[in-house]
């Protein structure tokens, strides 16, 4: 275990260059290029806020702000998990032909999605300014913490799904279905008050719930995140991260043969 971590550290430059390649490669050749990082989630937010505030009449103040604060972290999580399923297979050529700690691939993939989220937070901050809500600067210090917690969760799940997909390709489709449903059990388009009392514990079982709630608390409610949410988010994420790391370490030896 210690050895693996050392190996990964030795290959840190590979992670950086893969991230750089991923970020630069993604929009290369498209006319709007890097702007797509913003356009895509922005359109999503516009559509959802139109549907939910006009048709469903959701009674949340400044709904677009509430939505955008939850949507950006969700997009990161969704990309990491969904894209995570195929990230090893996508690099089959490399995996089959050269040695490097295999963890590098999901780490690089999730990290590039993470960088995209950081960039998209420019929109979030703009939205906060536009709304006139303003920032609580002290509370803002919790923002990096919750981002790191979410990063651990996303990476942990990416470890699991990427390694299993190598052996079992259906997982990619299964994950697609799960993610489609998952967004609806996460308080992004509604808040917890809409959820009937008896179902609330269920929603909280979802590890993304406390994370999204903490984002809301920091940026929407401008309050110090509640300790139980922080502990829950941090504990569960760390656990999943460790499990993911171990599962990946068990499965990665036969990657080259299975692809």
């Amino acid at each position: 275990m210690i050895q693996r971590i050392k190996d990964i550290y030795a290959y840190r430059d590979m992670i950086f260059s893969l991230v750089r390649r991923e970020l630069r490669g993604r929009y290369k050749g498209s006319v709007l290029g890097f702007l797509w990082t913003y356009i895509n989630p922005l359109c999503q937010v516009i559509v959802y806020s139109a549907v939910f505030s006009v048709i469903f009449k959701v009674q949340i103040d400044k709904f677009y702000l509430y939505l955008i604060i939850g949507m950006m972290p969700w997009t990161f999580f969704n990309t990491s998990v969904q894209g995570g399923t195929t990230c090893i297979r996508a690099q089959a050529d490399m995996v089959k032909k050269i040695f490097f700690p295999r963890e590098v691939i999901p780490i690089a993939y999730v990290t590039s999605a993470f960088v995209n989220m950081l960039l998209s937070f420019i929109i979030v901050f703009l939205a906060v300014l536009v709304s006139g809500y303003g920032f609580n600067l002290q509370v803002l210090l919790f923002l990096p913490l919750i981002m790191i917690i979410e990063y651990l969760l996303a990476l942990g799940i990416a470890f699991i799904v990427s390694s299993i997909t190598v052996y079992f390709r259906d997982l990619e489709q299964i994950v697609g279905v799960i993610m489609m449903a998952w967004i609806y059990i996460t308080p992004i388009m509604y808040n917890m008050e809409y959820v009937p009392e008896q179902y609330r514990p269920l929603i909280v079982l979802n590890p993304m719930t406390p994370i999204v709630e903490v984002y809301h608390q920091i940026l929407y409610y401008r309050m110090v995140p509640t300790t139980n949410y922080l502990l829950l988010a941090g504990g569960v994420s760390l656990m999943i991260f460790i499990v993911g790391f171990i599962v990946f370490g068990r499965l990665d030896r036969n990657f080259a043969e299975e692809m």
């Binding site: 290959y11 950086f16 290369k28 490399m94």
Partner: peptide, 19 residues
């Protein structure tokens, strides 16, 4: 391994070596 066609030779040296 890991060469990216849109990146320059110099950039690819770094990427490739990092692998």
């Amino acid at each position: 391994a890991g060469f990216h066609p849109d990146m320059t030779g110099r950039e690819n040296i770094y990427t490739n070596a990092s692998i």
